[in-house]
């Protein structure tokens, strides 16, 4: 079902924003992994942040608190590598 993938990717407009998000996530103890953004999702910033589904809402709160602009996109389990 759309929006319910096992893993989500967070996309940003710049690396500056991506790294600010990574710092905020790690400080909050949210398990994230930086990775390239698949082209079908975005061609903005090449650096995205993957987060397990169960931590998605927590991460959204953290990034909102850090004033980081971003977009959460579910990764399709069948095409995920």
């Amino acid at each position: 079902m759309a929006g319910e993938g096992e893993e989500w990717i967070v996309v940003f407009e710049s690396t500056h924003a991506a790294l600010a998000a990574e710092r905020a996530a790690r400080r909050a103890g949210v398990p994230v992994r930086m990775s390239p953004v698949p082209r079908r999702i975005s061609t903005d910033c090449n650096t995205g942040m993957r987060v397990p589904r169960e931590h998605r809402h927590g991460l959204e709160l953290v990034l909102r608190g850090a004033n980081v602009e971003c977009r959460f996109v579910p990764l399709d389990p069948e095409t995920r590598h």
Partner: peptide, 21 residues
Amino acid sequence: SPGRSAHAPGLAAGRVVADTR
């Protein structure tokens, strides 16, 4: 290079720039 590639050394370079900023 910072801010270009999402591999480990690329991210580490990006963090260097972000830390300095």
